[in-house]
């Protein structure tokens, strides 16, 4: 007599993945940011897509981002196993085989790029393909383990979605798209370095050459302040283009003042003080950095809505 239940266990073990495990491979939290910024890029463009085409564009941009996330998890499984923050991801947790993640990443990359090309245009599809390549190969396979500037250059991968959204609608890449790209690109380093300051053991245990590990924490604090100072003119400049306006400028002024103040506070602190209060300021600035990006892109949406409803025309502001 054979116990079929025992046989099932012997054949599959406890690692039979559910659908949710495959969804986790696509980094849904990163995807939600991609959806939001791509949607803004798409909606603030001077012309409009058919709603179904716009929906498809956002879905396939997000799918491309998710695919690159799966490829990143496949490549970085050894690092993820060591880091506390990532140890429960599906591959290090033993729920999904590395080969499955690779297959899923490659298949979804192909589907996303081809479908975006069919739904919108070749420029948007090409930019999406480049973004996936940049994140999976340039950032994950090369920069992440090679240089402390990994976050600076790798941040470009996260900065592309609004540009792809814009390109999907207009078929070109204007100054506005470049400024939205630059906003995320310049925001990424201070955002991640603030995180690295209070996730102190993770990166050194995994031997990832984060700035905190290679150049020390004092230098990281200086870099956060320097990059925040450089971020301010980029954020304000978008307010003087066709996608900006008074609402955006007001929001940008407030958020940049707060972010600069936070970066200044991080720069002034030393490790002893940070240790003493459990990295309170660093955690606050990290949280603020999330709101920073959300508020900027929301303000761009508000500007687009005001232009769309003709509200600016009524009060005599050129839109």
């Amino acid at each position: 007599m054979t116990d079929i239940r025992a046989d099932i266990h012997a054949q599959t073990g406890a690692s039979e993945p559910g659908f949710g495990d495959y969804v986790t491979l696509l980094k849904p939290r990163v995807m939600s940011l991609v959806v939001f910024t791509a949607l803004v890029g798409l909606l603030v463009a001077p012309v409009a897509l058919h709603p179904i085409e716009a929906l498809a564009a956002v879905i396939f941009i997000a799918l491309g981002a998710g695919a690159s996330g799966a490829l990143n998890m496949w490549w970085d499984a050894d690092i993820d196993q060591v880091m506390r923050r990532t140890a429960r991801r599906p591959i290090p947790a033993g729920k999904v085989e590395p080969g499955e993640a690779l297959g899923l990443g490659l298949a979804l990359s192909g589907i996303a790029v081809i479908m975006l090309g069919l739904a919108t245009n070749l420029l948007a599809a090409g930019l999406l393909a480049f973004t996936i390549f940049f994140y999976a190969v340039i950032y994950s396979m090369w920069l992440k383990r090679a240089t402390p500037q990994n976050i600076v250059i790798g941040g470009a991968a996260g900065a592309f979605p609004p540009m792809i959204g814009w390109a999907a609608v207009t078929g070109s890449v204007g100054i506005e798209a470049w400024l939205m790209f630059a906003l995320i690109f310049m925001w990424t380093p201070p955002h991640f370095w603030a995180l690295a300051l209070f996730m102190k053991e993770d990166y050194s245990n995994a031997r990832v050459p984060m700035l905190t590990v290679t150049h020390g924490r004092r230098s990281t604090r200086r870099h956060i302040l320097a990059y925040t100072v450089l971020l301010v003119p980029v954020a304000l400049a978008a307010g003087f283009t066709s996608i900006g306006g008074p609402v955006y400028l007001a929001a940008a002024l407030v958020m940049n003042a707060l972010f600069l103040h936070g970066a200044w506070a991080i720069w002034r602190r030393d490790e002893a003080r940070a240790e003493a209060d459990g990295y309170r300021t660093e955690k606050q600035v990290f949280r603020l950095s999330l709101y920073y990006l959300f508020v900027h892109f929301s303000a761009l949406l508000v500007e687009a809505a005001l232009r769309g409803t003709g509200a600016y025309a009524l009060v005599g502001i050129a839109g």
Binding site: D3, R5, T12, E16, G20, V23
Partner: peptide, 20 residues
């Protein structure tokens, strides 16, 4: 004979995957 029980945890996960 031990009956094959389709409500095993394994089957739930497979069902969730197939449904998804």
């Amino acid at each position: 004979t031990t009956p094959l029980r389709p409500t095993h945890e394994l089957h739930k996960r497979r069902f969730s995957r197939n449904l998804g």
